[in-house]
Amino acid sequence: MSFAEALLLSVVTAAMPLMLAALGEMVAERSGVLNLGVEGMMVMGAVSAFGVAAATGSATLGVLAGVGAGIAMAALFGLIALGLAANQVATGLALTIFGLGLSGLIGAPLVGARREPLPRLEIPWLSDIPLVGKMLFGQDALVYLGALLLALLVYVIRRTRTGLVLRAVGDNPEAGHALGIKVLRVRLLAVLFGGAMAGLAGAHLVLAYTPFWSTGMTAGRGWIALALVVFGAWQPMRVAFGALLFGAVTILQFHAQGLGIGLPSQLMASLPYLATIVALVMIAAAGRKSSAAPAALGREFVLDR
């Protein structure tokens, strides 16, 4: 494998957790719910996936555990922010603090353990295409799953009734209710989907991207995923593109020294966060945000008869 091939491959691997978490959050936000707990759901997904995979030796069970943990965390958010109509911003923050703490608690005995990263499944012939072959057809199973989920989301949101109901609830929940849509149920399902995706993202992070668990290892990726939703203007393809861009920034920082960039490593490490700010500002300045954001984003809906 050439250096360029390895680089492209690692960009996709680095982008995958961001993309999965951002797509999940995008669905939640499309239903009008702002869940700032992505970081917490993701880190819980990571620790659960690693713990189960390490205990059972099965990566599949690990992935399922990660997804399950993400769903459980999202359910907690749903209970308080949807069931009790509490402030979504504060509830999401609490979920992140909760997830970071709880993952540290459960993960303490796992620190230091290592396991083999997910195997890369090379598709015969196709993966031999120069340069992009390895990137597109030499990935681990979760990357293929991610690509599948992306295609599915594009289709469902634009083309199906499910997507229509989702968009309607995020645009005007009161009108949806008047039409007989079970608004809170739709929102809860969207939030749970977001949790599942964040959990999957955490699983990929800990099973494929880095082969070990360390406390707080998500390192703000959940927050970057939140920014990617804005950056991608709530459109799945654009969100995925943004994730690849950020994957590239992450990889760039690792290879900076090799490329002869003499900046201190800490400053290179802050690059993704600075890039996030720049991306947010660019999108906001372009004025796309105001028109693309779901109209009811962050607004509580109270079933009151």
Binding site: L36, V89, G220, W223, I224, L226, A227, V230, Y273, L274, T276, I277, L280, V281, I283, A284, A285, K289, S290
Partner: peptide
């Protein structure tokens, strides 16, 4: 620019 202060303040 109208950039979300939640995310920018956190990134910083």
């Amino acid at each position: 620019f109208g950039a979300s202060e939640i995310l920018t303040s956190l990134m910083l």
